[in-house]
Amino acid sequence: MATKEMRAVYAETLMELAAKDPRIMVVEADLMKATGTTGFKAAFPERAVNAGVAEANMVGVAAGLAAEGKVPFAATFGCFASRRAFDQFFLSCAYAKLPVKLVGTDPGVSAAFNGGTHMPFEDIGIMRNVPGLDIVEPSDPVSLKGLVQALAVSGRPAYLRLHRKAIEPIYKEGETFELGKGKLLREGKDLVIVALGGIMVAEALKAAALLAADGIEAAVIDALCAKPIDAGLIMDWARRTGAVLTAENHQAATGLGAAVAILLAEEGGVSFARIGIKDEFGEVGTQDWLLGHFGLTAAHVAGGAKALVAKRK
């Protein structure tokens, strides 16, 4: 698959699914143009519901649709999906065991020019509180397609953290994906970097190359899911290397870093550090400036890895 806007992949995948599965719907809150689902609406007018600028009602309506057997993908910016409609999603969807797929777009620094008001560094942390929820952040167009396909048939509610912008493919066409399963992208003996999402997996791979030049061999895992995390895969490489560094475009205290920290604390025996947003709000700027400002670049990941490996030794 070529480099492609993630929102185009999201919409195309849903349209492919919808052509075969009449249950698939999209529900939006006046952001269809942003999410890229106007084509879906043109193809399936009745199955694309626009609730207007009313996120709480969007999620409530999605719950009602799901109660009648539909599989609604309800999308808005991640800040609003998580912060504004949390109670609706928690109760009417998750507690009610209704398979609404809540889609939060523009994760973390990818919100860029929309700035701190629109920059969700907390959505995974908020959603990790929902019992039994699948939380997914695909890292490239291929994993996005595969995981949307998996979500469509899971029968469970889910939170999908969706990048809208173009992202270079990491996986080859035809790679298969499973909810709750990560992927080992690179082997290495000195540490494992567990990365999440459309920015940080790519940065982690770049960091591994930087580290290799300095004689440090980093394994890289694409977490793909922030809940449940792939405990088996992560612990396997934690034990092989003795050092784990997480990397995420989200608050490290509540996101993937927190989930992996809990796993390691319970299993024990390895050194651990986190790359991610510290206890901070978002800012406005280009994505590249934000990556640098918040310490999310490959160089930051590589620096964190070196410090961790040095501490372990």
Partner: peptide, 10 residues
Amino acid sequence: ISAACGIAYA
């Protein structure tokens, strides 16, 4: 009442 809207729509 929101869910009822979704149910009626479906």
